[in-house]
Amino acid sequence: MISIRRAESRGRASFGWLDSRHTFSFGRYYDPAHMGVSALRVINDDKVAAGAGFGTHGHSNMEIISLVTKGAMVHKDSEGHEQLLPAGEFQLMSAGDGIMHSEFNASQQDSLQFLQIWIQPNQMGGKPGYQQKRFDLSAPVTPVITATGEAGTLQIKQDMTLSHINLDSDDSHELALQTGRTYYVHVISGDLGLDDETMHPGDGATITDATELVLQQRGNEPVKALLFDLP
Rank of each mutant, 00 (worst) to 15 (best):
L227G: 15
A33I: 07
G53H: 03
Q83H: 07
Q155N: 13
H164C: 13
D195K: 11
G204V: 01
G80R: 04
E197D: 13
P140S: 13
L177R: 09
I145L: 07
D229Y: 11
W118A: 03
L167E: 11
I99S: 09
P222Q: 15
T69E: 05
N166M: 12
S66D: 05
G96D: 08
S20I: 03
Q131G: 07
A87K: 00
L137Q: 14
F114M: 10
V48Q: 08
Q116W: 05
G204P: 04
Q108H: 12
L154C: 10
T182C: 10
D171C: 11
L167T: 11
M160V: 07
Y184F: 14
M160P: 06
G204N: 01
F90Q: 09
A72L: 00
Q113W: 03
F54V: 02
A72I: 01
D77S: 05
V187T: 04
R12H: 11
A95S: 06
D229N: 09
V42H: 02
S189R: 13
H164P: 10
P231L: 10
L230H: 04
P201V: 08
L213A: 10
P143D: 10
A87G: 05
P128G: 04
L192E: 11
T142D: 08
Y29M: 02
F104Q: 04
L85T: 00
G180M: 12
G202T: 02
H200T: 07
V37C: 11
S163G: 12
S38W: 07
H173P: 01
H57Y: 11
V185L: 11
H34P: 05
E8T: 12
Q155M: 10
A49I: 09
I2E: 04
F104W: 02
M93A: 01
Q120K: 07
T148E: 14
V48L: 09
I165E: 13
P222H: 14
